[in-house]
Design a binder for these strands. Structure first.
Lengths: 210, 210
DNA sequence: TACTGTGTCAAGTAGTCACTTGATTGAGGA
DNA sequence: TCCTCAATCAAGTGACTACTTGACACAGTA
């Protein structure tokens, strides 16, 4: 017989083993998939295929779809954190937030999906941390208000929410942008224009005085 | 024989036939389901159960899940239309928009889902009609701008988008609202407060001069 | 009374999903 | 050289999904 030696078939698959690399491949693919379709719409098969790894590794490393979602939420948190805590003029901070549509659209979309999938307090894993970060912004608004730079009737917390929602609009309401502005909401030139406009509005409200 | 009359077994199922009523039952249930979970997350089984009718009727009346989605999108259009075309002061119009979070949260959520599920022009069935309606708002802004009531550097179309995004925030970013404002984003009292604040901001920008 | 078409239903069907099982590979230590 | 264990894979599995099939009930009409 020609099969004298069992000849452990040299199966060409199975990449060079590297847990860190594999984790990162999965995380990157998951971020794109969840950002594109939300939690319910995302497919673990698509994530594995995009990452070029076996589906099972999603369970091995992240304990399933939900664990994976939590993991990318944490990763985005860190980035958002850097963004908001930088010591910049407030109008500049808001412009940067609007420009995330260019630099990190996945993160912005994740935040928007989170809003629609949100189901009462306790449902949002990172709500506490987010409130910490953004309350900082609201605090700065309040200080400016007491200094007389901002109208006294304004509620700093509400204004924070409004500015944030407005800054995200090129990502969260692209269909409206396309209809009203008549441009491709992902066009970098338009996004920069829009970011300028958001900063301008913030300035008009009194956020950029010395 | 005792069975002289075939006595057409009175199967207790099968409601009184009423196509109009059935259509409406399905539409109402579908609106709630799509608003709650988006298109991908909505389940036709859940819609049928909620409407108390057989799943098959969704195909009979609306030609499937997608046709049903189109049908409710049209229904919401009409309402949004009424809302924007009313001849009211612009700040009041914006307040009303923000108050839709109370009166028609499903419609607002549908709009938000539409943004995230949007995939380039041509994908949004109602984009044309929406742009017609909202461009009217932008036009009024432009007129006000030419009258000198609004800063010249502002782009009316962008401002329209910003105000709309801000007005929707209690529905589209409830997790952020909860974190920053520390309140239940669905609390009617808070929503009214928030609507006042959005109108106030619009006023500060110059939208409410005579 | 018989016929016809519309509205309704129960019971499929094929496909997809998240997740599981069990085996295989390689690296490092005994 | 053999053993162990972490990393990887292929091939399921049962649950669920949108959609289909085929039959039946009722109302109107002839």
């Amino acid at each position: 017989m020609s099969t004298s030696k069992p000849r452990r078939s040299p199966k060409p698959q199975e990449r060079q083993r590297d847990p860190e690399r594999t984790r990162k491949l999965i995380l990157d693919a998951a971020e794109a998939e969840f950002a594109a379709h939300g939690f319910a719409g995302a497919r673990t098969g698509a994530i594995a295929a995009q990452a070029g790894v076996n589906q099972q590794l999603i369970w091995y490393y992240f304990d399933g779809k939900e664990g994976l979602y939590r993991a990318i939420a944490e990763r985005w948190q860190e980035r958002e954190n850097d963004l908001v805590t930088q010591d910049l003029p407030m109008t500049e901070q808001i412009r940067r937030y609007a420009l995330e549509a260019l630099h990190n659209p996945n993160g912005v979309r994740l935040l928007a999906w989170g809003g629609l999938e949100y189901d009462g307090p306790g449902d949002d894993l990172d709500q506490e941390r987010r409130s910490d970060r953004l309350s900082g912004f609201a605090e700065r608004l309040r200080a400016r208000q007491e200094a007389g730079d901002l109208p006294a009737e304004l509620d700093p917390a509400c204004l924070t929410v409004m500015l944030m929602a407005a800054a995200m609009a090129t990502v969260s309401l692209p269909h409206v942008v396309a209809g009203v502005c008549g441009t491709d909401p992902r066009d970098p030139e338009f996004v920069r224009h829009y970011a300028d406009q958001v900063a301008l509005v913030a300035g008009l409200l009194g956020l950029d005085s010395p």
